[in-house]
Write a protein that binds this DNA or RNA. Structure first.
Length: 431
RNA sequence: UCCUCGAUAGCUCAGCGGUAGAGCAACCGGCUGUUAACCGGUGGGUCGCAGGUUCGAAUCCUGCUCGGGGAGCCA
């Protein structure tokens, strides 16, 4: 009796007869021999059906299989130098489950609009399969690192009564008799959690109702946000560079095959180790001016600016001490330089730009009250947040890492929309 | 929201004032090592929508709709 096997671990069955269950990815045929390329969710493998070596009705059934038909088959696992994954299946029997009709994504090239309309099917294909497998590894590694380093996962609510940072536009929804908004960050709740548990993180989707239309924006994206009590900005950055290095190392360790499928230059990833270079906002402005950009102190970086800076480094770079005026109300001012705050954005190399934003938070109740007045934040909405500065306030810091941007960088992808199973983009809500 | 490019067969595109084309997919046939397999054949179209110019519009003009790329904002 043939043992049930997974393509991803087919090497464990070398020389043995196995049963595979999956879908037909592609078929090539030459009269007396069919090459069935089978996928089962864990991998892809070529199954060879030779006339005379299987029952005649099985050979005929194999010839009638169409792209994405579902089937089971049995055969002998055989190491073969001609095979892409190193193994092939010499088929003994073929059992079609359903012969698919007119599968839309054919083996030739397609436009992005068509592929996005067929996203529910596109995720079956090799490149998408590799990208989403790497996404899984990024998330798993990030949580592993935090769990191993004393962080507790304490998630933040998705439905919130008010903005966390005030600047970006929020999705509004009904909450019985009042208005609620979809979370754009778990930051403020994280600070409460850090005062309760010390080191915490939250992980979940966040929503920005910005009408952004670029290769690095999603309307709905996933963010991992650690927050640490008794932590200053230097320690905060140390955690960030260790976390990112750990993620990259885990992807290199566990997803070599997927990196090969998408033809990623892994030598660029093998150099990702702490420490990461630090660059002050002041110096970054000088570099941009030197490169001929029309920018002056106090301006935010545009996408071309971030690209220009990150292209100059082979590792992710921290840009530190941004002007107070362009950052969130809760950031701690730099001692002796109130015009800048203790913060850093981490820009991924190769031109990818920002993947992390982090800062030390204001702990002083008087300063926090002043900032909340300046930003017109109401006592009603932010009273609970203010209490964190009254009942045992401590220095604390944290950051948020954008999962899809991180995956885009690690996979060397052009566009962020393929880094999430079902992207929500400007003017695209389906499927 | 702004700038810019585009919409022709199921898909990717060519055709750019004179009767609608190719490759792939589908269907039929051939091929014992293919791997975006290949070779022969068949079917397949309200040229995004609405107006206009013209003897004649897929082709030129205007508006609309939908999409790509870029900007701003951000992770």
């Amino acid at each position: 009796m043939a043992a049930l096997a997974l393509i991803g671990k087919i090497g464990e069955h070398d020389g043995k007869e196995v049963e595979l269950r999956g879908w037909l990815y592609n078929k090539r045929s030459s009269g007396r021999i069919h090459f069935l390329e089978l996928r089962d969710g864990t991998g892809f493998i070529q199954c060879v059906v030779v006339k005379g070596e299987v029952p005649d009705e099985d050979f005929e059934a194999a010839g009638k299989l169409t792209q994405e038909s579902s089937l089971r088959l049995t055969g002998i696992v055989r190491a073969d130098a001609r095979a892409k994954g190193g193994y092939e299946i010499t088929v003994k029997s073929v059992m079609p489950f359903q012969v698919a009709q007119d599968y839309p994504i054919t083996p030739k090239e397609h436009g992005i609009d068509f592929l996005m309309d067929n996203r529910h099917l596109w995720i079956r294909h090799k490149r998408q399969h590799a990208l989403l497998s790497i996404r899984h590894e990024v998330i798993a590694a990030a949580q592993q690192y935090l769990n191993d380093n004393g962080f507790l996962r304490v998630d933040a609510p998705i439905l919130t009564p008010a903005a966390c940072e005030g600047t970006t536009t929020l999705f509004e929804t009904e909450y019985f008799e009042e208005k609620a908004y979809l979370s754009q960050s778990g930051q403020l709740y994280n600070e409460a959690d850090a005062m309760a548990f010390g080191k915490v993180y939250c992980f979940g989707p966040t929503f920005r109702a910005e009408k952004s239309k670029t290769r690095r924006h999603l309307i709905e994206f996933w963010m991992l946000e650690p927050e640490m009590a008794w932590c200053d900005q230097e320690e905060n950055q140390r955690v960030q560079e260790e976390l990112v290095s750990y993620i990259v190392a885990k992807v290199l360790e566990k997803r070599r095959a997927e990196l090969a499928v998408i033809e990623r230059d892994v030598t660029k990833l093998e150099d990702i180790k702490p420490p990461f270079p630090r660059l002050s906002y002041d110096d970054a402005i000088d570099i941009l001016k030197g490169a001929g950009r029309d920018i002056s102190w106090g301006d935010d970086f545009g996408a071309p600016d971030e690209t220009l800076i990150s292209e100059r480094f082979t590792r992710p770079v921290f840009v530190t001490n941004y002007p107070t005026s362009m950052k969130a109300f809760y950031m701690q001012p730099e001692p002796g330089r109130p015009e800048v705050v203790k913060c850093a954005d981490m820009l991924a190399p190769e031109g990818y730009g920002e993947i992390i934003g982090g800062s030390e938070r204001i702990w002083d109740p008087a300063l926090m009250e002043e900032r909340m007045r300046q930003h017109n934040l109401s006592e009603e909405a932010y009273g609970w947040y203010m209490q964190l500065r009254k009942f045992g306030t401590v220095p604390h810091s944290g950051f948020g890492i954008g999962i899809e941007r991180t995956v885009a960088w690690i996979t060397g992808s052009e566009h962020i929309r393929e880094m999430i199973p079902f992207p929500r983009l400007l003017y695209r809500l389906r499927p």
